[in-house]
């Protein structure tokens, strides 16, 4: 499978740790985004140019999307959700470049992101609502549902990681198989599908993470509002 390009290649070792191409690509994306955005935002003006307009449109769109789900906490959630969207989108699309592979076709990477979401849900919940108030939503509507809530938290995290991994891995496998079978012209529609799939999967992962965080916040807030009424 190493020769087929679907296996995760080890680039080098640091002691007993294996540094895979997934990690290298992810680091490369991080550095690239950091440099690009540093360069683009180093001199923002009151009257925006084309690039500034695009940047403002991207950030505003992300903030609006977050605000549509969690209007009261958009400013706090936007960096996390926006970073997910941007990183996953770039990670999904970078596989189109010959010689590079999408980090999201590696389950270790998607699992790491899903775990990040898992902890982010509780982090934002505790930070915004408070420790006790947030944990109280696990016993709603009945303490009997605590195990199911915990299972739900874990299962949706696994689902989140497997969904992204499965889609991106299958997409690359499909493209590879078609390339092996039909030559060079046939993969073009598949590449177009790859772009669409990359956008959709990035959106789905980010919006699900947002919904998980928002549901943890709003379920408790709705209950508190009912108690006040």
């Amino acid at each position: 499978m190493q020769e087929s390009g679907l296996d995760i290649g080890i680039v080098f070792h640091v002691g007993s740790f294996e540094i895979t191409d997934t990690v290298v690509t992810s680091f490369g994306i991080t550095v690239l985004l950091g440099v690009v955005f540093w360069f683009l935002t180093r001199a923002l003006t009151r009257t925006p140019g084309r690039i500034q307009t695009v940047l403002e449109a991207v950030v505003s769109t992300i903030e609006d999307a977050v605000a549509s789900v969690a209007p009261d906490h958009a400013k706090q959630l936007t960096p996390f959700i926006g970073s997910l969207w941007i990183f996953i989108l770039i990670s999904n699309l970078i596989g189109l470049i010959p010689g590079l592979h999408s980090p999201t076709r590696d389950f270790s990477a998607t699992a790491g992101l899903a775990v990040m979401v898992f902890f982010a849900v509780h982090w934002f919940g505790i930070r915004i609502l408070g420790f006790k108030a947030y944990l109280r939503h696990f016993i709603r509507p009945s303490p009997l549902l605590v195990p199911f809530n915990i299972i739900s938290e874990i299962s949706r995290t696994i689902a989140l990681s497997v969904r992204l991994f499965g889609n991106m891995m299958s997409l690359e496998m499909t493209a590879l198989l078609i390339l092996m079978v039909a030559g060079f012209l046939a993969p073009v529609p598949v590449l177009m599908l790859h772009i669409v799939e990359a956008l959709v999967q990035a959106y789905i992962f980010g919006i699900l993470a947002l919904v998980y965080i928002a549901s943890g916040l709003q379920s408790q807030q709705i209950h508190e509002q009912k108690n006040k009424e």
């Binding site: 990690v23 992810s26 680091f27 270790s108 775990v115």
Partner: peptide
């Protein structure tokens, strides 16, 4: 290793 480094990277 990838799992942890991906979290740190993110």
């Amino acid at each position: 290793t990838t799992f942890v480094l991906e979290i740190l990277n993110f």
